[in-house]
Amino acid sequence: MDLNFFLSSALNGVVYGAFLLLTSLGLSLVFGLGRVVNFAHGALYALGGYAVIAIINQTGAGYWTALLLAPLAVVPIAIAIERATIHPIRNRSDVYTLLVTFGMSFMLIGAIEYVWGTGTTLLKPPAPFEGTVEIFGNQYPLYRLLAAGVSLAVSGGVFAFIQWTPIGLRIRAITDDPGMAEAIGVNTKWLLTLVFGAAAGLAAFAGALGAPIFAVHPEMGMGILLDSFLAVILGGLGNLPGSAVGAMVVALTKSIGGGYIADWSVAVLFAVVAIALIFRPTGVFGRGRVA
């Protein structure tokens, strides 16, 4: 195998990793905050992809406007889901939220199929980014690089928000110790609703941003959901920097490993994650929460 092949696989990995980062951050935040394993995250990501297309077709808006509006359309749906299904069963065992969000994922995918059909749509990259640039001797789509940059920038924004704002401080307090946070007056329930909505917004934004790269179809969120789980577990549940590293590890393993040992790379990845979760339940860096 020549070096160019390796480098372009790596580049594809970084692009995918940037998207994975956006979806993993949301999953990790919601888990850290409420121990909610959100199986509907992938469906919310898909909803973002459909929302951006619907907004462009219905209102004639440009791609960039639609990209900003799509998450705003998904956030209220997610908040309604949290209030209606997760909020009432917060006092039951953690696995119930897993089951409920799994059912919600079924419903959302079903709703997408009902409204938009089961077909696959591929959005054209917006002008002037539809061209390619030459990297490592190959023509590489310009939009992919741009989208990866945008994903990384937004993820950086999320980090900054969690690190430096009062709400971010509360989120970190709850992730550290929910009982203590509540005792000093943090409203954990409303914050969970808000963060669940924000996480869905991030997923939808990723789905919308990825619409010109990955095909938009009802089940498009399933693959990225599973990969995000892997990333979040590797990095430690609730540990945001860990999730970021996890996202890159998963994406690079898939793209580089996939080029050399085909589908075996993913088998190895799942095995590694299963072993990691058993022997390092707080993630490879040992700073996350125990599932």
């Binding site: 394993v37 953690d94 696995v95 979760l277």
Partner: peptide
Amino acid sequence: VSGVAFAI
């Protein structure tokens, strides 16, 4: 393990 970890 049990709970969520077992599920995953």
